[in-house]
C-alpha cells in the first residue's frame, strides 16, 4: 500500500510495490495523458514530476513513492486553463501525432522552473532524452524560448 499525492489529490494505491508509476497512473488511476513509449527510460514519453523533479515514470516503482508528490500532464493545465508553456505550444503549433508531447511538456516545464532563460545548449541538455518521431523539435525549441520570454516579461 502506497500513499502519495498526485496532482494535489491524495491517493492510496494497493498494487505490487515493483509496479512502475507509469502503469499505476494509466491503468489504475486512469490518468492516460502519461504515455508508454519504451518501458526502459529511453524515450521520455512517460515523464512526470516526482517531488518537482522530472522522472521517467516507467522507471519509478510505486513502492518507493510513499509520501511523494507527483505531477502529471493533467496537473499542469487543462484545455480551459492552459499553462504559459502549453499556450506557447499551441501558438507555435508544436504537436503532430502528439503522443510524446505530454512527456516533452513535463520535461520542459521542469526546465523552466529551474532555468528561467535557457540557452539552446541548455534546451539540448534538458530535452534530448525526449524522443519525437514526428520531428517537432524545431517548434518545440521555439515554444520553450517563447514561454521563457513571456515568463520573464
Amino acid at each position: 500500500m502506497t500513499s502519495l499525492t498526485i496532482n494535489d489529490t491524495p491517493h492510496v494505491v494497493e498494487v505490487e510495490p515493483d509496479t512502475p508509476l507509469l502503469w499505476v497512473l494509466r491503468d489504475i488511476l486512469n490518468l492516460t495523458g502519461t504515455k508508454y513509449g519504451c518501458g526502459a527510460g529511453l524515450c521520455g514519453a512517460c515523464t512526470v514530476h516526482v517531488n518537482g523533479i522530472p522522472e521517467r515514470s516507467c522507471q519509478v516503482s510505486i513502492g518507493d513513492l510513499n509520501g511523494a508528490s507527483v505531477t502529471t500532464i493533467e496537473g499542469i493545465g487543462t484545455p480551459g486553463q492552459l499553462s504559459i508553456l502549453q499556450q506557447e505550444w499551441v501558438a507555435c503549433q508544436v504537436a503532430q501525432c502528439g503522443y510524446c508531447q505530454s512527456g516533452q511538456l513535463m520535461q520542459a516545464t521542469a526546465l523552466l522552473q529551474e532555468n528561467s532563460a535557457p540557452t539552446d545548449e541548455d534546451i539540448n541538455a534538458a530535452m534530448s532524452g525526449n524522443l519525437c518521431r514526428c520531428g517537432s523539435y524545431p517548434r518545440l525549441r521555439a515554444a520553450i524560448h517563447a514561454a521563457a520570454k513571456r515568463m520573464a516579461d
Binding site: R26, N30, L31, T32, G33, T34, K35, Y36, T72, I73, E74, G77, T78, P79, L82, Q86, W89, V90, Q93, V94, A95, G98, Y99, Q101, S102, L105
Partner: peptide, 23 residues
C-alpha cells in the same frame, strides 16, 4: 491560410485519446 490545428489543445493537455487510452 495557416490554421490552428483542431487537435492541438487536446494534444498539449494529455486529453487526446489514442487507442491505448480507451477506458
Amino acid at each position: 491560410q495557416t490554421l490552428p490545428r483542431l487537435d492541438m489543445v487536446p494534444k498539449v493537455t494529455g486529453t487526446a485519446r489514442y487507442a491505448t487510452d480507451i477506458d
